[in-house]
Design a protein around this nucleic acid. Structure first.
Lengths: 202, 202
DNA sequence: GCAGGTATCTTGTCGATGGCAAGATATGCT
DNA sequence: AGCATATCTTGCCATCGACAAGATACCTGC
């Protein structure tokens, strides 16, 4: 519950590792980027953090618990990213979509876990709250359009926007898009694709 | 190499199981629908098929080999589905997109493996051929539009269409869409969403 | 400052899994 | 009929997730 970051963290290894929970989540990102969520092993994370094989269970209960925390972290980062983009771009839905893709590419490991509910505890309260935050950020992007749709049309627009950016991100991460066809810059490619759906007002 | 479907298959169990390869692929679909690709176990498949735990390895080499065959099967079915839809709908890109979503929902297990290259051998020749077939079916849908785009614009349209249907299917399968917001009929919801991108010419 | 309580981590174990090796058995070709 | 081969079985090992029990360091209350 408290942050036990003493001066020891600078010198030797902090006591009882000091911040194992964070270290494990960080190691998980690296491991998932290397081998995907299916190849993740709690024992491998423990080795990366330099602790015994059973240490992770204390912080997360089980493997799904760790991935629940990992997904929650992802949804929070996504919500923050979208909020910041909306601020900086003046409410452009195009830029919001590009921000979504940017998040997926830069936080590939998180993104790959976030939408795979069989990997984590989908009824976790913190997770649901983070999901709501991210969802609200997306909705605000649609609601803030100059010619903002209302009612069912708004929901449809939101879902269409979400679908196209989510689909592009997923296809990109899955390696389904040949570099010689879409280039090697995911943001530029995303901008062209999303532009096919919405003309940028900003 | 040959189909050993003798008259025994009707009476008792066919000898040496008869068609274990097919039985394992079929069992894999059921198992993946139940627990996702990550929870798949070769030993569980062997139990479902009534053979010893090492039997699957003979047909597929390893787990990734089985999933390679499984993904190939998926791409072939997808290509067939898209070709049939294009025939029946008279070349409507909207209906082609709906067909993509229908495939994903009705062959959920296949779809969940097909775009996760870390699960299979991505350099497999048969897999690549099946991917090409499916990809060509999608491209033909764009090329057959009444006002068919050409050059880079065609590629952009193709990618936008693929992204929006793939994204919608992925979000639907991942349970990210609340039934009270999009209903419980994926095809109807997909039609509305895709319609946001392309007006149906058919 | 110290003693009890607690959070954190370790060690040991169990059942299950993937993969490999070696052997058994049926099939088909000659 | 006999032999080569495809198919399947048995046995084994390293690894994994989960659990139980114990050790260690911290922290609170006095």
């Amino acid at each position: 519950m408290l942050i036990a970051m003493s001066e020891e963290s600078a010198a030797g290894r902090p006591y009882h590792h000091g911040d194992l929970r964070r270290a494990l989540l960080s190691a998980a990102a690296t491991a998932i980027e290397e081998s995907g969520p299916a190849g993740l092993s709690l024992r491998d994370l423990a080795r990366r953090a330099g602790v015994s094989h059973a240490a992770p269970a204390h912080h997360f209960g089980d493997k799904a618990g760790l991935l629940t925390a990992f997904a929650t972290e992802g949804f929070e980062t996504l919500a923050d990213t979208l909020a910041r983009v909306r601020q900086e771009s003046g409410g452009s839905l195009l830029e919001l979509g590009v921000g979504y893709v940017t998040f997926a590419v830069r936080h590939r490991a998180h993104f790959e876990v976030m939408f795979r509910p069989e990997l984590f505890h989908r009824d976790d309260a913190g997770l649901a709250a983070a999901q709501q935050r991210a969802r609200a950020a997306l909705r605000a992007g649609v609601a803030g359009l100059p010619a903002a749709p209302v009612g069912p049309e708004a929901a449809r627009t939101e879902l269409a926007a979400w679908s196209i950016v989510h689909g592009f991100a997923t296809l990109w991460l899955g390696g389904a898009l040949r570099p010689d066809q879409v280039g090697d810059d995911p943001e530029a490619a995303a901008r062209l694709v999303i532009g096919r759906l919405f003309a940028s007002p900003g």
